[in-house]
Design a protein around this nucleic acid. Structure first.
Lengths: 133, 133
DNA sequence: CGGGATCCGCCCCGATACTG
DNA sequence: CAGTATCGGGGCGGATCCCG
């Protein structure tokens, strides 16, 4: 099967499942969201993305951009100038998605502390048994 | 460092980054969302989850539930009856998250066709070069 | 400048078997 | 019924080098 790999396992299998997975398969990659954020305010060049994201490798930047382009979330425009100039821009579809992600951001910030506490409590409850005795 | 693995790489590194990643790290797992969906309407037993999700292994069901529990998204209640009876239930925090996921669902369904077309176009444009010559 | 190609480690997840 | 333990594959992502 000549199906390309987009980032998270199995497109085919989960197709029938809830559509949320479709979104997640597209956005759950380690860098996808940060790229969308960085490109949210207008066209941006490859190197600008590379510097603004911090920690990303050229490889992953390229791969993630390709996947986003493939899914119609970003457009890639090549300006055939002497030093090559490539600009990436969000599609309207991607800008809608970006807006939607904001409600997730909200949720995360509202419950960030609670989650941290829940983790600490869980770890305190389950880890010591290994060291204690 | 005794930090547990929750599903998607690096908690520490991305802590400073956008909080969306925090949510995704928690939900991007292959089964997390389906479990949240299955448990959305009320307490549900382990085996009920296992049967209602279809395709999930006992192992992954357990692991994903543990992570959700650790993050405070589900509660685990053990009834010490003769055949053991364990019920999982969403916390209010998780129900809020579930509601938020609905806007993602919407987005996915609105653009599902467009995305599929974008993919087909991209693949048609980039794949043939390998076979053609 | 904007990539592509390759090698490799790590973690996610599946399959199977065993337990209280 | 509700898990745990172990083995193993696959793919995501990092590092490095090379190209037009």
């Amino acid at each position: 099967m000549s199906q390309r790999n987009t980032g998270v396992t199995s497109q085919v299998v989960n197709a029938h499942a809830c559509p949320v997975r479709e979104v997640l398969d597209r956005v759950a990659g380690k860098w996808s969201v940060q790229i969308l954020v960085a490109a949210a305010h207008g066209p941006i060049r490859f190197t600008e993305l590379e510097r603004s994201i911090d920690g990303i490798s050229r490889r992953m930047l390229t791969l993630t951009l390709r996947n986003l382009e493939r899914d119609g979330l970003v457009t890639r425009t090549v300006h055939p100038t002497v030093p090559p100039r490539v600009e990436y821009e969000l599609t309207s579809m991607a800008r809608e998605l970006y807006a939607t992600l904001l409600s997730l951001t909200e949720w995360a910030e509202r419950h960030r502390v609670t989650i941290a506490e829940a983790r600490a409590a869980y770890d305190a409850e389950h880890a010591p048994e290994l060291l204690d005795v």
